[in-house]
């Protein structure tokens, strides 16, 4: 019995990581209706940038965030203004195919630069530390990951609904032409949205790299987890995305409890069940 409770707790905490995968995806979809197929590969890129930073500067992965976050944000802004803005329009093919091409390029560039050998970020003592909670040993790192996810989502929520930047995001999302007439340069606003999304991706990448080993090929899987969290939670709802991540995480740990081979499969099945029963997700955004 206690093992199952343990699995649920672990799954919930894992859901925090998936929510972080999903938050960037959700953010850019919300602002510019763009679905970035390369999102997972960008998470992996962040992990590798974290690896390079920790090795070069000899710092803890968390400290590496000081470098990796602005770097990813800059990459995001440049990517959006240089490439992705040109793909936006009524036709869904260009953004889809261009980000798909980007994904292949990123994967192979990482392969070229870092080989296919699995890598890991060394988080030190925090990786093995745990807290005893009512007979359960809860890992400090997963707990911290979950707390960071909650903080990031609360932060994004605040940016979106309480700042001028967020006002611009929502205005451009509502009506690009009128926003432009009000003096907003949508190319710049989209660039800022992608910068913010990839700054979040940097956090996700570092936490991923401390939790498990990674290699250039795992991006697709991370994209799918993030995507599933978004759809389970309901499009356009950041807190729903966190719930979606938790449901996905719990489904995976419960699946793994039955048979390790079922871990990822159980998550996919949970996603398909939600899609069958509640196609708009569990917590769709209420239009006001």
């Amino acid at each position: 019995m206690i093992e199952w409770v343990g699995a649920i707790v672990q799954g919930t905490l894992l859901g925090g990581l998936y929510a972080l995968f999903a938050a960037g995806l959700s953010l850019i979809f919300g602002v510019m209706r763009l679905v970035n197929i390369a999102h997972g590969d960008l998470i992996v890129l962040a992990a590798y940038l974290g690896l390079s930073t920790t090795l070069m500067l000899g710092v803890h992965p968390f400290v590496a965030l000081i470098v990796v976050m602005p770097l990813m944000a800059a990459i995001g802004y440049a990517l959006q203004r240089g490439v992705l803005n040109r793909t936006l329009g009524p036709d869904i093919l260009p953004p889809l195919l261009v980000t798909f091409g980007l994904s292949v390029i990123l994967q192979n560039a990482l392969l070229e630069g870092f080989t296919a050998d699995p890598q890991k970020l060394n988080g030190g003592a925090i990786e093995t530390a745990s807290l005893a909670v009512g007979g359960l040993a809860v890992g400090v790192l997963p707990l911290l990951t979950f707390a960071i996810a909650v903080a990031v989502i609360a932060g994004l929520q605040w940016v979106f609904y309480a700042t001028a930047l967020g006002r611009g995001f929502r205005a451009v999302s509502d009506n690009q032409d009128i926003a432009q007439i009000m003096g907003l340069n949508k190319a710049h606003v989209f660039g800022l949205a992608m910068a913010l999304a990839l700054a979040v991706t940097a956090i996700a990448g570092i936490l991923l790299g401390m939790r498990t080993s990674f290699d250039p090929a795992i991006g697709g899987g991370r994209l799918i987890f993030g995507f599933e969290a978004v759809i389970i939670g309901g499009l356009g709802n950041l807190w729903g995305t966190l719930a979606g991540g938790v449901i996905l995480g719990v489904a995976q740990t419960l699946g793994a409890k039955i048979d390790p081979g079922y871990q990822v499969l159980a998550g996919h099945i949970a996603f398909l069940v939600v899609l069958a029963v509640r196609p708009n997700g569990l917590f769709p955004r209420v239009e006001h």
């Binding site: 205005a171 999302s173 007439i181």
Partner: peptide, 27 residues
């Protein structure tokens, strides 16, 4: 571009209002 024109001091009250539905009146 429209945003540059806006900064020069030309404003438009568009046909059909076209308010931003996600924004409050004050926003």
């Amino acid at each position: 571009r429209a945003d540059v024109v806006a900064h020069l001091g030309i404003a438009l009250v568009p046909e059909g209002r076209q308010l931003f539905p996600s924004l409050s009146v004050e926003e």
